[in-house]
């Protein structure tokens, strides 16, 4: 049981960070409502899965296709890494998108300005 608690303790802050980012970006009008709902759904699903890891493992361990054993420390590290990577990827993709948008606007602006100077 202590290992499941560890899984939650390690992952909950990442999930809350993801949720906070989504909410902040939405409130600052950086993302649309549709996008906010999508991101909220992803992080909530992750949060539910982490929180319910113990019953989920119990349920799956008896199934033929899964053959899951009790959660190991390695499982905890791997799960935490995956969730952290989801956070990082999302964060970086957002930054790239912002940069692309800035560059696009800059190019448009500079093309117009230069053409006017001709």
């Amino acid at each position: 049981m202590i290992r499941y608690a560890l899984l939650v303790i390690l992952n909950a802050p990442i999930v809350f960070l993801g949720l906070t980012n989504a909410l902040t970006n939405y409130k600052l009008h950086k993302i649309s409502k549709e996008r906010f709902i999508g991101r909220l759904a992803i992080w909530l699903v992750i949060l539910i899965c982490v929180a319910l890891a113990f019953p989920i493992y119990n349920y799956l361990s008896g199934r033929e296709l899964f053959e899951i054993y009790d959660v190991s420390l390695l499982n905890i590290v791997l799960t935490t890494t995956v969730i952290y990577l989801i956070y990082i990827i999302n964060h970086q993709r957002q930054k790239i998108e912002l940069l692309e948008n800035t560059l696009r606007k800059f190019h448009e602006e500079i093309s117009i300005k230069l053409s006017e100077k001709k």
Partner: peptide
């Protein structure tokens, strides 16, 4: 015609966007 020259090739969507930005300005 009034001509705006793009500095880099962006594609038809990019060129249309620049045109509409000009119209806005």
């Amino acid at each position: 015609a009034i001509v705006i020259d793009h500095i880099i090739n962006r594609g038809v969507g990019g060129a249309t966007s620049t045109g509409l930005k000009y119209a806005k300005q």
